[in-house]
């Protein structure tokens, strides 16, 4: 598989205990609000609905598409859940999915689960929904709405990756100047797959069962443009947003790389203050020496190093992804086996 869920489902041991506990606190607080809001707005019938739709998100993460070289793209599903169920119920569904994956399949750890839920369940649903609504409100029509969902889906994956990179750095597990461009760069591509699947799924639902979309989406879908036309429009504009995604991915590197290579003292001081640093101070960045490329000066050099780093990590990640893909395929086959037998 293309490592969509795999690099974000951190196992135990990769985030330090202070980071894990801090994110458990934040996650618990946000989910408490979600529970209150969901209980207030949901009808009784949602009791089975949330559970079945959580199982749906789990199954939807199995749906893949072939990318290249034996890798494939997958869905994470945060924005899809938020748009279909609303952000509060969506975050409860995503948290349940992540909890079951950790408890039943050991996909993601227990102590670090707070951070995992924050990254995939809260940023993806609440954060993604804010972006979706913000962009959706700027334009009219169903096609614009789908575009907003695409941007939100891309953003949700990208933001989760950036936050994960910071968590890894704060945990002293990976230096920020490697983790940030690597995670941000790889997930800028993975986010494109997320956006494509999310948009196609929403367009499909809108054309077949528009009544299942939330009232607001329904109103927009019903008024004006035809759904199928909207979908085809979105497809025709596909190359445009594909290009936009690649530009955005490069932009992320360009914007973040200098930041990453800048004086890391701030982060170091946080580490020291909390007493969990075992790192020495100076010059810890040798993978690309001084984070510069010989023959190029200043920022340009940093940016090129960042892009090189992304390519390097991408290559390694794709290799690892093939291993994971084989494992998932084996699991899928086992499941199929026991279902056909």
């Amino acid at each position: 598989m293309f490592p969509a869920p795999f690099l974000l489902h951190a196992p135990d041991g990769f985030f330090s205990v202070p980071v894990s506990v801090a994110f458990w606190v934040v996650t618990a607080a946000v989910l408490a609000i979600s529970v209150r809001e969901a209980n207030r707005s949901l009808e009784e019938r949602t009791v089975p609905t949330l559970g079945v739709l959580a199982a749906f998100i789990f199954a939807a993460q199995m749906v893949n598409f072939q990318v290249a070289g034996g890798t494939s793209g997958h869905l994470l599903g945060g924005v899809l859940a938020a748009v279909l169920l609303g952000p509060w119920a969506g975050s409860i569904v995503m948290a349940s999915v992540i909890a079951v994956q950790a408890l039943v399949f050991q996909d993601g750890g227990l102590v670090v689960m707070g951070a995992n839920i924050f990254n995939m369940g809260i940023i993806g649903t609440l954060g993604g929904y804010v972006v979706y609504r913000a962009i959706a409100s700027l334009g009219r029509g169903w096609r614009w709405q789908l575009g907003a969902a695409a941007v939100a889906a891309w953003f949700a994956v990208e933001a989760a990756a950036v936050v994960t990179a910071f968590q890894l750095a704060l945990s002293d597990t990976s230096p920020l100047n490697v983790a940030l461009p690597a995670m941000a760069g790889v997930h800028a591509l993975i986010g494109l797959g997320e956006a494509a699947i999310t948009v196609a799924a929403l367009a499909f639902i809108a054309s077949v069962r528009p009544d299942l979309l939330q009232a607001r989406e329904r109103a927009i879908a019903a008024g004006g443009e035809g759904h199928a036309g909207g979908l085809r429009g979105a497809l025709r504009s596909g190359p445009a947003w594909l290009a936009a995604g690649i530009v955005a991915s490069a932009l992320v590197v360009v914007v973040l790389a200098p930041f990453a290579s800048a004086d890391p003292d701030g982060l170091q001081r946080v580490a020291t203050d909390y007493g969990f640093d075992t790192v020495a101070q100076a010059n810890p960045y040798e993978i690309l020496p001084g984070y510069t490329v010989p023959g190029l000066g200043g920022t340009a050099s940093t940016v090129v190093s960042g892009l090189l780093g992304v390519l390097l990590v991408l290559a390694v990640v794709l290799g690892a992804a093939r291993i994971v893909a084989a494992r998932r395929a084996a699991r899928l086959q086992r499941e199929e086996a026991s279902s056909t037998a």
Partner: peptide, 8 residues
Amino acid sequence: VYPNGYEA
């Protein structure tokens, strides 16, 4: 033979 050993 299915991976679970069942010979179909």
